[in-house]
Design a protein around this nucleic acid. Structure first.
Length: 122
DNA sequence: GCAATGACGCTCT
DNA sequence: CAGAGCGCCATTG
């Protein structure tokens, strides 16, 4: 493909960034109901090892009403880590509990029991 | 373009 | 087990 230079618009750059998130969304979309996956786990499954932070960023960029099950994504401690304000952290916990995911007194999930385990590389 | 910030995580103390 | 340090990367001032 001819490499167009200088003329690349910011729009194009934006598109590339979103495209970078695609594999992340693709993996997150496969998390089954009643199970959870960690940011780092998703990063790895998306072939982006060590970029857990990028996963969190991708989740934050989701638009309202997205069909991606963002609530099934938790941190490595099995807890809900949400941004300030919005109260989305409570929403996430409620949605998970409604799917049967249990939280202990400390507010964390037993990953040994609820972590999603995809069969093999896909 | 540099510095700070943020839905993260692993290692070392 | 809590806290500090460091790595990673997109976004913002």
């Amino acid at each position: 493909m001819p490499r167009r230079f200088g003329g690349e618009s910011a729009h194009r750059r934006r598109a590339e960034t979103l495209n970078r998130f695609s594999p992340i969304y693709a993996v997150a979309a496969r998390i089954p109901r009643g199970r959870v996956a960690t940011y780092g786990q998703i990063a790895r499954l998306a072939n982006l090892p060590g970029q857990a932070r990028l996963v969190g960023y991708a989740m934050a960029a989701l638009e309202d009403g997205s069909r991606i099950p963002w609530h099934r994504v938790v941190n490595a401690k099995g807890g809900v880590s949400l941004r300030s304000g919005g109260g989305m952290d409570a929403v996430q916990r409620l949605r998970l509990e409604r799917e049967g995911v249990r939280f202990d007194r400390r507010g964390s999930i037993d990953l040994a029991r609820f972590r999603w385990r995809p069969r093999a590389a896909r």
